[in-house]
Design a protein around this nucleic acid. Structure first.
Lengths: 159, 159
DNA sequence: GTAATTGCAAAGGATTTGCAACAGT
DNA sequence: ACTGTTGCAAATCCTTTGCAATTAC
């Protein structure tokens, strides 16, 4: 993992100790191209034979997020997920498949442009945004899976 | 509250009892144009002199969401918020002020069109989306408040 | 009357915090 | 040495669930 030293540098700049645990957690997060949950990070650490307390994982993730090296996401699962930002598109959106859970990252300057335009039309100064599109990924469509019409038993128009 | 009878109708259609508690909770949600938390709903009920258990509020909100009359939101505060959908734009996005917490709803067919286009370009069949733009609302800008540059102590480029 | 709901309290899951033992500088 | 971290367990927060008493139909 060639990126752990960036986190080391960040910690030193902040006058914070560089501990084994922090390096290991950073390694796991930087090594994965997925959106990891705390549970999954703990698993991967165990798979490496490392036993690190959950509290330390949470505390280290907070620093990784503050450092700007890692982003925190909430896809409405009841817990958070984390992804490192190396070699990533600086601004990207998420396509989330409701059938298989696959998350695809996409980039669209046009989308960003329209968002900014719409915001400023309302006198709003946009700083950051979150766009998640839920639906069926290509693989699930090919497999013949269909979207379930969650919770639309009684649309307003028909009442 | 002229809309409570829609919820009554929904309950009857489903063969579910129309209870006082359900009507009162629906009234509170339908009466507010805000995005209410369960805590806030409970407060408003107390203000009316009604004492309804939290469990009942959660259970009733679940039905209101299933009925399609109310939408559930998670703005990353650690709890959910609810808004009724009467006289609302059917598809709308949220502008969230990080200074004062004000939530503005906007509608943009262009945004929706671009989103669908981008998704389908990736072979993705979009069903619904969530767009939240965080930044400074017009009032906060006028008041001279500035965006705090949360967690960007150490941007990647400078490492 | 019967079946479903209510409300309380207990359980649940994710995250946080207090604190004694420990590691980094 | 001194300061900050670790890890465990307890605490916290939002939400769900079990169950006896109550209400809707």
């Amino acid at each position: 993992m060639p990126f752990v030293h960036l986190f080391r540098r960040y910690l030193r700049d902040q006058g914070l100790p560089v501990t084994q645990q922090r390096e290991l957690i950073a390694e796991v997060v930087f090594a994965s191209s997925d959106h990891l949950s705390v549970e999954e990070i703990e698993e991967q650490l165990r798979a490496r034979g490392e036993r690190i307390g959950k509290a330390t994982i949470y505390r280290t993730l907070e620093m990784l997020v503050k450092s700007g090296l890692v982003a925190e996401h909430d896809f409405g699962e009841g817990f958070k997920r984390y992804e490192h930002l190396f070699g990533q598109m600086p601004v990207h959106e998420h396509l989330i498949c409701t059938e298989c859970g696959k998350v695809t990252e996409i980039q669209s300057p046009e989308l960003v442009r329209v968002q900014e335009e719409v915001a400023s039309r309302h006198g709003f100064q946009a700083a950051r945004h979150r766009l998640e599109i839920y639906g069926l990924c290509a693989a699930c469509q090919a497999a013949g899976r269909k979207l379930e019409w969650e919770g639309l038993t009684c649309p307003i128009e028909t009442l």
